[in-house]
Design a protein around this nucleic acid. Structure first.
Lengths: 214, 214
DNA sequence: GGATATCAATGCACCCGGTATACTTATTTA
DNA sequence: TAAATAAGTATACCGGGTGCATTGATATCC
């Protein structure tokens, strides 16, 4: 009991100076990269340039991000965790459709609240439009996240979803929302318009669930 | 007139020796690459190795394929054209759902019919499973195809689909099918099982259309 | 509080995918 | 047969990404 309390006490300050500095360099790299990409374009900005501008070595860049593209996707994991938590913390007996809808809403809201206003989504959209490499990497990340969500859902609803229907359902939903979002962003829509398009697409995607209820 | 006849005469053999040799080199590169990938794995096979084994220069490889991954995706365009043709040649008044279903079926059938006997499907499955790069590239190709199909559908059904609902519908359908396909392949399913999973996913994806009919 | 272990960051040499350029053929056309 | 075209070549280069040995700040332990 005591050790539990002790552990809980430590949680808030669990970041030492070392960890804080690490996060600082990480943030600096992300911000610097975003700025340079916006100024000169993605292809025209080298990792060496980013490292130089952030005043670290090129090697350090790759200590924080496995590839050049990943510096753009850094917040993806947080969004995935959000979705997974919604699934995990569902009320017992909550219907699949409702849980999936809530999970999706959480991600859309987070995007609307954080990415769109910060201009990060718009930047990402620009980069997606003119760099196939970025496009491929983002798609790949989205796909992996999708697979994780599918797995979580299948564990939560084993009697309804099997090995391939779970991915197909999630694929339909995520596919609908992300295709709509990218189309909207590439058309130069405002953040509000894009959010609206995502919500509409969510409805479309969710109706894929009708195939299971007959 | 004479020159026209002359030209027409040549049409049957409209592929000169030059063009034939070019196609030959291309085929050799594809086969050599597939063989080496199968033998040593994707990452362990360099473009230089492929060129060497095919007895051409490395530069020649890139004359035929824009990237290393593209040597695996060379037939993707044909499949897309198939889907687009189904949409274009629809009977006037044919319902959206039916056209989309047929288009999808055409692609699934083509995959089952061509990739299966060539053994290309199995190889690709292995490579998708263990190379993120390949995975990303294939996803990317699929996404672009998806966008083209969405655009074609929107032109065919302008009163039902707008700028963002078209991508969301197609995204749902393609998302469902490709997620199911990859999940199945990564589970080591047989080609027949994978095809079946794709067909089931197609039903799931298509029911996203219910959102439009109310 | 000082020795010691840890770990972020570094510098450097190196590999591989992809490109620019200037060149050498083989094939096509006139 | 000569000129034009286009596939293929050799070479040098760029940029992303890794292996490795090292340094120096922070954390841990006695």
């Amino acid at each position: 009991m005591i050790s539990r309390l002790h552990y809980a006490d430590r949680v808030p300050e669990e970041t030492g100076r070392r960890e804080r500095k690490k996060q600082q360099t990480r943030r600096t790299l992300i911000e610097t990269a975003a700025r340079l990409f916006a100024e000169r374009g993605y292809e025209a900005t080298g990792v060496a340039d980013i490292a130089e501008a952030a005043d670290v070595s090129k090697r350090t860049f790759f200590l924080h991000f496995p590839t050049k593209e990943d510096v753009l996707i850094s917040d993806g994991r947080a969004r995935l965790d959000l979705a997974l938590r919604v699934i995990e913390e569902r009320e017992p007996g909550a219907p699949l459709r409702e849980v999936l809808a809530r999970s999706l809403t959480a991600m859309i809201d987070d995007t609307a609240a954080r990415d769109l206003p910060s201009g990060m989504a718009a930047l990402r959209a620009r980069l997606i439009a003119d760099s196939p490499t970025v496009q491929a990497r983002i798609l790949h990340a989205a796909f992996n996240a999708q697979a994780r969500i599918a797995e979580a859902l299948r564990e939560a609803y084993p009697e309804v979803l099997d090995r391939t229907t779970a991915p197909s359902i999630v694929g339909a939903v995520v596919g609908a929302v992300s295709a709509a979002a990218i189309a909207s962003l590439q058309d130069g829509d405002s953040a509000a318009e894009t959010t609206a398009a995502m919500r509409r697409a969510a409805v479309v995607g969710l109706s894929a669930l009708d195939a299971l209820e007959e």
